[in-house]
């Protein structure tokens, strides 16, 4: 099922690129989308996990604009590095979900993903706290 979503996204990109809904063009796009290899882990991926991740990424876009306004209006506070747990862990990380998580974290201007910690249980996230004044650094 998750494979179907990936194939659907490929077909969507083809149709947007060609801007042509003729039968022959759709058939070519479908053939290309099906012919491109699908990683085996995609086939095992539950559609609910992919759907949740996609929805969370979409929800991050309005949040990103709210955070952008907050960042532009207020002076950014201190920088912190924190760990954010990976939600879906079937063993080792699934590329599509990691991609969506990294996208969701990084598109919001107050947070940037810095990669995963060693065992892949959480993401290292760099966060700007906009609500705190910059700490005074003595001796500088």
């Amino acid at each position: 099922m998750a494979g179907l979503i990936v194939i659907g996204l490929r077909l969507l990109i083809w149709l947007l690129l060609s801007a042509d809904l003729e039968t022959a063009n759709v058939a070519i796009g479908l053939a290309v989308a099906l012919a491109l290899p699908l990683p085996r882990r995609h086939r095992q991926l539950p559609v609910s996990a992919l759907g949740r991740s996609l929805w969370a990424s979409l929800k991050a876009i309005p949040l990103a604009y709210r955070e952008a306004l907050a960042l532009l209006i207020r002076r950014p506070g201190r920088e912190v590095e924190e760990l954010q747990p990976v939600e879906y862990r079937p063993g080792s990380p699934v590329a599509a979900l990691v991609f969506l998580d990294v996208f969701r974290i990084t598109i919001t201007p107050l947070t940037i993903a810095l990669g995963m910690d060693g065992p892949g249980r959480s993401y290292r996230v760099h966060r700007l706290e906009s609500h705190h004044p910059l700490p005074q650094e003595p001796g500088r």
Binding site: A64, A68, L72, P76, T106, P109, I112, L128
Partner: peptide
């Protein structure tokens, strides 16, 4: 003179959003 990562946060505002 902000840190590199702080500048990246602002880059997200400018070039993405």
């Amino acid at each position: 003179r902000a840190s590199y990562l702080t500048k990246l946060h602002y880059l997200g505002v400018a070039d993405t959003l």
